[in-house]
Design a protein around this nucleic acid. Structure first.
Lengths: 211, 211, 211, 211
DNA sequence: CATGAATGAGTATTCATTCAT
DNA sequence: TATGAATGAATACTCATTCAT
């Protein structure tokens, strides 16, 4: 990839990031490409140089987001830690990602209706990939006896839901730092899974404010 | 309220329900009044007889949804049960509501940007009303010693998030009935709060499928 | 069809006529719906009430034109006249139609590229219907011995081509009336077919000016 | 003209040929420079090195086409043949040109609206030059007594129209070769003019298929 | 010379909204 | 009350054109 191509890739990424933020804020249907362009001090036309049309911008943005997420969680899975430690890291990472990008990994509600079947399938595939990494972590914990037995997919969905929703209530001005907050969230969410929550997890949970 | 008014109120409610479903599916910005009208075999114009404009439809729909929710949770709070029992009921009810209406109580992401300040405040007030009922339940449990101490608002947000998200992954064809599913969800979510989860909660959680 | 529907049909027809004239003058690609709307003192939006999109307007206009043509030539075929007389009438009629509507029955070059396959097929079907009426007339003349034998489809195409092209060179200000002109055209074109041109056709052809 | 200039002239010609074909297929307004460039595996921008703008490309293409045509018909007029023979050759040549270039000499409907007055005049001049060569041939035939008397301009327009229209109905896969087809066309068209068609023209016309 | 990138003006299309009936 | 019709403003999208490299 030569310099020119690098520059182009960079710009494309910048557009996708801006698009994600605008789509998250106003919803796909409520966001105009003008909004996206203005955020980048570009003209609408420039966007069309990099993306075929609005649905294409949505699709590629989703793919970008999911691939990045998949990469991040893979790193955690491959690291040297106990299963509990890994799960905690995964929760903290997901939560901070949601807060920082103002966008759930899988948030933007049902944008599927705007995509082609093939695009929907690819998105689904990437989501499944991410979710199955979580599932594996849970299964491992169950086998090791540190997590309770149960319906893995349901717990996983509850975990992800609780985290993605953070986007809806987190507000910049809070007294807690992002790190403190995500730590506390991990504390609570892990309780759903832990065999002996009070023994297996120390610190977190102790205070009384939000928003 | 005479017959004519009753009829009108009925129609208004029908429109709001249709609107909620369309807004939830396509987002406020992506939904057209045409979509809403078609669902009811009406014409666009008719909606304007009942609602001032699109934001008004959004606003009234939200209020309708929240008032209903507030009413439902009040009934639970006023009932004769243990705190744990009440919390379980609240979770089951919220979950089933989300599944049946295909719409989180507070789902529709940030539609606030389309409303006037007063409208936003009223929505906020109703949301707070609902949330504080949850908070009270938690506080009571803490005082009674059945729930762990901690940051009430955060737990409450995690609970609501996990439940609202169900809308994203629940699919009609699942092997589990809605009742079984919401029961299992309550089992997991209560673990976040319960002092001694394994003693204080019997049944639920034991199987391995979803979707 | 009640009054309202009649009015709507009327308006639709008016839009198609305006569209035909604009498409003929500027070509489909070069014409804007704004142009069409202005011709009728309407707004662009109104056109979209009657037609799905620009290609739909093109398609329906073509169908309208061809159906009308088919109707007209059927009347001639059904009338009481000799074959030669009928052919002459068909030529005169087609020519005058082209002049008056500023649009060949099948003119507008290759607008097919903008239509769906089904639409193209329907257009083709209507064109074939029209052309086969011409063909029948020629065949009849051949059987009766008044037209020379030969390749019917080629002659027919030459006849239609010569007539459709009139649109390109006819100009309002000419010394000849439309009737005189089309009569003269019929005189020449019939010579291609007639067994003994000089016996079978009297009058026409005798002068020396155009444009 | 040195090598570099020759190369440039060559490229210019290639662009014009591509442009003619695209303009003929989609119309001037419907054709994009992107289309033209793609046909030549170039980028849009390159065209601007050779042509000032889109109208300029149209204008020069037209001039190129007409000059070539004028050159070709001049050769026929200057050759040693009877008038009938010359007319036949002119018809065959024009027809084959239309078929091969998929473009009537004067086809592309009314592109005049996009050109300056001076450009329109030059085009008109070249068209007149071509047409008057046809007219001269006809006049000569009339004087020699082999063509019937009549309105020369009208016959000439009918002839050209019939030939230009071939573009609309000729299709590659036909059973007849281009030579056979144009021969047959000449047979029919000459009948419009010939004093005694059945004596003065032998062969052609005898069969029954097209397309 | 040619290309990739960007612009801006124009055009297609959608849709909330109005209104006469 | 409800509908068909129309408007106008916003928005998606295209494309001729320019220009630095």
């Amino acid at each position: 990839m030569n310099l020119r191509e690098q520059k182009a890739a960079h710009k494309k990424e910048a557009i996708m990031k801006a698009a994600i933020s605008v789509f998250t804020e106003k919803g796909y249907g409520g966001a105009s490409l003008e909004d996206v362009a203005q955020k980048l001090f570009m003209t609408k036309g420039a966007i069309y140089y990099y993306f075929k049309d609005k649905p294409d911008l949505l699709y590629q943005s989703q793919v970008y987001l999911l691939q990045k997420s998949n990469h991040l969680i893979s790193e955690i899975l491959d690291s040297e830690s106990t299963t509990i430690e890994k799960m905690k890291k995964a929760i903290v990472q997901h939560t901070e990602y949601v807060i920082n990008e103002r966008s759930g990994f899988e948030s933007m509600l049902n944008p599927e209706s705007f995509l082609t079947i093939e695009q929907q399938n690819e998105i689904l595939r990437l989501k499944n990939e991410y979710e199955s990494k979580f599932d594996k972590l849970i299964e491992k914990g169950v086998k090791e006896g540190v997590f309770i037995q149960g319906n893995i997919k349901i717990v996983r969905n509850l975990l992800l839901g609780a985290m993605n929703w953070v986007m809806q209530w987190y507000s910049e001005g809070g007294k807690k730092s992002k790190a403190e907050l995500s730590d506390m969230i991990a504390f609570y969410l892990l309780r759903m899974l832990l065999q002996n929550p009070d023994e297996n997890y120390v610190n977190g949970g102790g205070d009384d404010e939000v928003q």
